[in-house]
Design a protein around this nucleic acid. Sequence first.
RNA 1: GCGCCCAUAGCUCAGUUGGAUAGAGCAACGGACUACGAAUCCGUAGGUCAGAGGUUCGAAUCCUCUUGGGCGCGCCA
Length: 554
Amino acid sequence: MKQTIHEILHLALTRAQKKGELKLETPPTIILDTPREKNHGDLATTLALTLAKPESKSPRKIAEIIIANIQDDAGIIEKTEIAGPGFINFFLKQDRWKKTLFEIESEGASYGLKNIGKGERVLVEFVSANPTGPLHVGHGRGAAVGDALANLLAAVGYDVTREFYINDAGRQIKLLSESIYSRYQQACGNAVQFPEDGYHGDYVEELARDFIQQHGNKYLNVPFEECRDVFGIFGKEMMLADIRTDLEAFGVRFDTWFSEANLLQDQSVQTSVEELRESRNLYEQDGALWFRSTAFGDDKDRVVKKQDGAWTYLATDIAYHRQKLGRGYKTLVNIWGADHHGYIPRMQAVIQAFGHPKDSLHVLLVQLVAILRHGQPVPMSKRAGTFVTLRDVVQDVGADVARYIFLTRRSDSHLDFDLDVAKEQSRENPVYYVQYAHARLASLFREAESRKISIPKSSTADLNLLDQSEEQHLIKALAKYPELVEEAAQAYEPHRLTYYLQDLAGLLHNYYFKHRVITDDVDRTGAKLFLLKQVKTVIQSALGILGVSAPDRM
RNA sequence: GCGCCCAUAGCUCAGUUGGAUAGAGCAACGGACUACGAAUCCGUAGGUCAGAGGUUCGAAUCCUCUUGGGCGCGCCA
């Protein structure tokens, strides 16, 4: 629709140019918007306003010229008008809108999903929590955003891989190992001191108990240095299994789990660093090895190998991202906690040092989640081991509610998650509001079926009977869906879908309340059912992208 | 000290990439069930878009400064 008007305007401009009515020294970009006010038409352009200066004519004069040159061969425009300072408003013929319904009927679940990805491969890396403790709500938000974004990109034709990067090398695992070892000793009656930076959560004691079940007191008199790996590997495996379980309960499944430790074992780190050395992006100073990230816009250069010969975290990240690019992904999307934002320039420097454009790495920042209970924030401290786990939240409010609420805000803004509201089943809880719309429709179709009323096919539905303003609003909302999905995908903003859904559900509830669907008027009933079937399809499609279920009954 | 992000109705937040009279939900007030799901709907009220300049036909949106908040700034991960 937008496309067609766009072309018509383009032709009008060239025609005006040929006649010498407009100079058009620099071809203007035509922007079409859907006006907020419905009496401003279906589509509007500011073309005449932007042309006013270069053409040195008044905007209204230019608008007149453009309109005079419009040829509506397909006959889709009802009327055009010049409004305000020089907006051109297009009113489209009603039956054009009805075509939307036929499109949804024939395309079904794939309605509105344009193939803008064209099969290009994208890697979405998210969650990537250290396997040293359970997932907390912050990880949950990252999981919801990452998974919905992956769905969204896949829906518009990208070939998407979901990856979990396992930080299973270095200090954290050693600390986990030491923490379990201490709890193990304590559980067996040895009063050893707990490591100062150790993990204090209760789950460590559970791990120690599990360890005793498997190994008994075999390691009671073994010094830590000699059984470090035993405890480390045990803890890591247990935690990873836990993380996997939690994510599955949350409806998130990864295609690949990528181990940091492997990068060290298979010499990838050495190879990557060697490559940077050859491209002269590395240098030695003060006994350490530095990456010249300033050459790519970073504030300062970064150490890759420390004086003591150990690799930094950046070193494994260099190897990891080189590896990702080497697997043939055009675009890398990383979902990080917002506190890592300072890390972005150096990673983009890495990407560029390997010869890829800066924006082939797209980092999405996810802000913290504050959990509220009875209106009060629940205190969380990772150090003290007190935090609300994803598992607690999912058990408390369910995966659908949690996912939806995580997606109701832009990912980089703070989110207050009120557990009491999340359990409420009312308009305040947007999940139920949207799901209820779907369930209501399902119920309506059950009712129709029990009365032996069938939904007409495209060929038999008389859509001219959909003459109520609420019906028109619904159709327009459905017509907007393709554009919305495309824009959300391009902006990497799945939250736009939640707002769209709330709008659409609102229109549906409003319509449903005002108008009885099933009446004695058979044709009108048929047309309404046809419309509502398409509404149901779109709600289901959008909820599907968000990873939230569309129940037939609640 | 330097850098990034943020500030919109009492509260929580949208705002179609610079457009027309800034929108939702909640809370408040007033209404709607003899009907396909009231987990719903309708109405009223609520605003100096933190403040001040600037850019232009036009700014919540872009630029500069100020104020107030969050987060980064390690040879930690």
